[in-house]
Design a protein around this nucleic acid. Sequence first.
DNA 1: TTTTATGCAAAGTATTTGCACGGGA
DNA 2: TCCCGTGCAAATACTTTGCATAAAA
Lengths: 153, 153
Amino acid sequence: MKFVVINKKCTADWLQCLQDNGYRLTAPRQAVVEIVASSQRVLNPLEVFGLARESYPRLGLVTVYRTIEKLEELGLLQRVHQPSGCQGFVAAFSGHQHLLICRECGQVEYFTGDQVTIEDLVTNVEKKSGYFVQEHWLQLFGVCADCQTESLT
Amino acid sequence: MKFVVINKKCTADWLQCLQDNGYRLTAPRQAVVEIVASSQRVLNPLEVFGLARESYPRLGLVTVYRTIEKLEELGLLQRVHQPSGCQGFVAAFSGHQHLLICRECGQVEYFTGDQVTIEDLVTNVEKKSGYFVQEHWLQLFGVCADCQTESLT
DNA sequence: TTTTATGCAAAGTATTTGCACGGGA
DNA sequence: TCCCGTGCAAATACTTTGCATAAAA
């Protein structure tokens, strides 16, 4: 069991990444990146809008959507699907789809699997993180045998 | 590793369950339940609407939403969150949040965990199901240590 | 100077609500 | 008969698109 520590200082890196990919460095983008890159909580577009407008009041909600979209494409942000909704985003870690999410405050931790059953894994995560785990989702996405055959023709 | 066989004949059971919970047995509800109870695919409200209208053309989309809502409350249906969207539903199995979903056709299988790592589990599922697994999500939902403390006060 | 990015307004989607009518129990 | 359920229409919420202006490179 391993927990990943969220890097709190990645704002500059993210802005650099945007620039390296041909996107311009603008004040509205900086305001949005500042919020989402340093958050340890799941945030939805409206929350990002509210927070980022504190530092850049002229910000439009549309720009928040467009910036989030770009950050997701670049693999910096990932969407979080929760029982309560699917509009949330957190900083992405390469290949990490293992999230531990607090339903009260939205805080997110990342973890990697271990040599145990799902039940044991949940117990381990609880012990090491201090969380009380109420629910878990394990979902695999792929192509079924029939559809694999079909795509050959 | 164990796969759960979807019961194809649960329409009557579901209608019974609705009635047992004080809901009336109506033609529109029967049409909707017939579709969702017997489907092995993930269906969204609009798809259910289209299919159920074949047997009951006067059906309204609103009724589909309202029926799905009730079935979800009763634990008969569960929402499926996919990279492509979160409007899908499939028959729920008590406690089963382990889904194997085909991205091509939407077919769903249920499985239970085993004494292996996530990587091994994915490999096992592939072998036994014939799926090619492209992506997996493992998400735990609960309450973090801080929020547990707060809720005591 | 050239091209991208922005914010507003409008258009799309998806879902929910209000309400009078119709049908189950 | 009584009350819940229905479908229509309208309202709401969320997200995307068109476009003229503003700003980055």
